[in-house]
Simulated scan of single mutants.
Amino acid sequence: MNSRAPAARPHNSGDDSPPTVVVTGASAGIGRAVVREYAAVGARIGMIARGRAGLEAGAEEVEKLGGTALAVPTDVSDYDAVDRAADAIEKELGPIDIWVNGAFATIFAPFREITPEEFRRATEVTYLGAVHGTMAALKRMRPRDRGTIVQIGSALAKRSIPLQSAYCGAKHGIDGFSESLRTELLLDHSGVHVTVVRMPGVNTPQFSWVRSRLARQPRPVAPVYQPEVAARAVRYAAEHPTRKQYWVGGSTVLTVLGQRAVPAVLDRYLARTGVSSQQTAPDIGHEAGNLFAPLDEHPGTDHGAHGIFDDEAHDHSATWWLRSHVRGLTVAAAAGTAAIIAGGAARTRLRHM
């Protein structure tokens, strides 16, 4: 749906006008939830993804919620296509204030079973897609000296797990690239910010359409959160972008701090449990998946924001509420968690001596 918006006033310039937001991976999952989150406050939203059905359905939702939408079908692995999409969005909706990089494609399989073409494709979409989105955003934000780029990251960017080597590698890459960029923006005293929101396991449709060679249905590692939790965190981060990263969910806190404290213990633990914890019911059959082509290309194939794990997914995160409302308590909780992890690791080592 293409809707003509009034000329956008600069965001972050002291006025209260809704922002112009670009979301990649906007057709489903976390990206779709972010679109809804911003639509509810009347934002102008440029929606980028490959799947036309998901984009069209999402654009209709935006209009119903009071926002303005422009859906631009785009493969983020193609920089020129992303740049053209950004041009179209600014022409239609006005200067881009916030750019959210959420697009990804991946494969669930042991590394030994992944082909070079599959690994390359997952890297091009997930890692280079974020790089391309950031390039397109900076091309427009830096001359205006304002704007925010939010990378939808993962706890798996700090602690990799089995069966997801392509995804973990790409997310690690996004972290490294974003840190480098942040230092350059600081050096230039730029008004443009970049921040990473580190996500836990989220109930998105990816587990039903991802390319997989597992014996059973892929699933997120528990505990699982609803995509709306992630979307609220993305919006908060965009409104408070001077912090380099945000951790969403208690499992993310435990994962990151555990990796810092006892990485070798986590290696052994994940070797024992990492494969079974990512599989559930018998496989529903998605060997091909959406790695090379979208599965929501045709009318009637919109997958929305939620996956098939609604019955166990949490609507809220207590640790995120603390982080976004009471900073001191969050710092204290993080310190306490680190102490607990270190103590548990010490006891584990003693048992194995």
Rank of each mutant, 00 (worst) to 15 (best):
W99M: 02
A233R: 03
I340D: 06
V100A: 07
I308V: 15
V234Y: 04
V202L: 06
A43L: 03
F119T: 00
F309K: 03
L93T: 03
A59M: 11
D310S: 15
D188F: 06
N203C: 01
A85I: 10
T301R: 11
L214K: 11
A271H: 12
G51Q: 00
T348G: 02
R9L: 10
R140F: 04
F119K: 03
Q206N: 04
R260P: 05
E239A: 14
L270F: 14
V210I: 13
A231M: 09
P10I: 07
Y167E: 00
D87M: 06
R50H: 07
A33W: 02
D283M: 09
T115K: 11
E113P: 06
D283G: 04
G42I: 06
A222Q: 06
R235L: 04
F111S: 10
A281Q: 10
G304E: 13
D188K: 11
G147F: 07
A338L: 11
R219S: 03
A238T: 05
V192D: 01
G343H: 10
Y167A: 01
G46C: 05
P10Y: 14
T204V: 11
R50P: 05
M353E: 15
L291K: 00
L266C: 13
P282F: 06
H316G: 09
G344Q: 09
S180C: 12
S13A: 15
Y38M: 02
R120C: 09
